[in-house]
Simulated scan of single mutants.
Amino acid sequence: MSEEIERADRRRLLSRLAGDYHVQTARRVSLAMSRDIVTDMTILAITRANVREVTASPGSIAHTYEGVPGVPADALRIPVSVYAVAKDLGLPYENIRRRVKKLLDAGVCVTIDGGVVVPGATVVRQSNLDLIAETQTATESFVAEAGRFGVSAAAHYQPPTPGLPRQVIRLAMNYFLDATCHGAKVLDLDVVAVLVLRAINMANLSQVTHDPARAVAYGGMDVVPPESERQAVSVYSIGRFLLMPYETARRAVLRLEQRGLVQRGRGGLTLPLEVINRPEVVAGILHLVTLTETFLADLARAGIAYRPSPAPG
């Protein structure tokens, strides 16, 4: 990689790639779990709290659940309160309490000493094992695309261990939760509205995000893709992509319109240029970039990094 490419500003480019990966992760999670993203985020937040101390080390987990490598045994899982989960997600307590009750009734989680735990039996369900495999494939593609555009954490690379797939799913789900919840905090939105907003932006700029020339041309913070590069998208398409009922997506769009974050035209929804340059939106972009750079470095330490082959000769 040339020194010029390494020095080039790629922050908007990386934020677009990250936003695309973010909403694609939301879709994968919903397909694998309950098809209700708030319920799915509740499951992820409980799981993260349960195993946070066990997974604090970047190394492989020595303990296993019923012989499945990389899955912490139930005895090591720390219960978490519904209040703590609601606070983590930035959602009303009653909203999360209702969802946790449904999860308890469905056997997805259990109560222990007054707290909630997602047990190993849930973690090793086939749908979750499929999600682990799909997430690793998608994450490797994301790392490779970012690397081809000049964003790489290869300096942090370490050879992968046998527990790589579970390291990747933990890193990816933590990244997904953090990207969603921080976006909600910065923009003073709920998590559903944040995902809808990012999905609209992804659809608007898909032809820019994945086109090599356009991606680089609009790669820096000082260069914003013009209105002519944006493709409008319908509420129906956004709801369908995120597996949300149309009415849920419609209400989220109304909240975004009331805040002036999206505008509706003849062709559908777009993010206007003035929104992209708002201080809070720029702050959100910069935080997402920092979060993504940390994510890429953590993935490299786990064994996934863009490392182009040296030129022959």
Results as ranks from 00 to 15, higher is better:
Val192Cys: 12
Gln231Ala: 08
Glu227Phe: 13
Leu195Cys: 09
Gly239Asp: 12
Leu254His: 12
Glu227Asn: 12
Asn204Gly: 10
Ile276Ala: 00
Gln231Tyr: 06
Pro279Val: 06
Glu247Leu: 15
Ala193Tyr: 08
Ala184Phe: 14
Gly265Lys: 09
Val289Ala: 02
Glu229Asn: 01
Thr209Lys: 09
Arg264Pro: 00
Glu280Ala: 03
Ile285Cys: 01
Gly219Val: 07
Glu247Thr: 14
Thr270Trp: 03
Phe241Ser: 12
Leu242Asp: 02
Arg250Leu: 06
Pro212Gly: 12
Asn201Leu: 10
Arg198Phe: 15
Val233Glu: 13
Pro245Met: 14
Glu274Lys: 01
Pro226Asn: 08
Pro225Tyr: 02
Leu261Phe: 07
Ser206Arg: 13
Ser234Val: 13
Val186Met: 02
Ala203Ile: 09
Gly220Lys: 01
Leu288His: 04
Ser206Met: 08
Pro225Arg: 00
Tyr236Glu: 15
Val282Leu: 03
Asp190Pro: 10
Ala232Tyr: 11
Thr290Leu: 08
Glu229Tyr: 04
Arg214Thr: 02
Leu254Ala: 11
Leu273His: 00
Gln263Ile: 02
Ser228Gly: 07
Arg255Thr: 03
Phe241Leu: 12
Ile200Met: 13
Ser234Asn: 05
Gly219Asp: 03
Gly220Glu: 04
Lys185Phe: 14
Glu229His: 00
Lys185Tyr: 11
Ile285Thr: 11
Gly183Ser: 13
Ser228Pro: 07
Asn204Gln: 11
Thr270Val: 13
Leu286Cys: 03
Val289His: 08
Arg255Cys: 01
Val262Ile: 15
Thr270Gly: 04
Leu269Val: 04
Asn204Ala: 12
Arg240Met: 10
Arg230Glu: 08
Gly267Tyr: 11
Gly268Pro: 08
Arg230Trp: 05
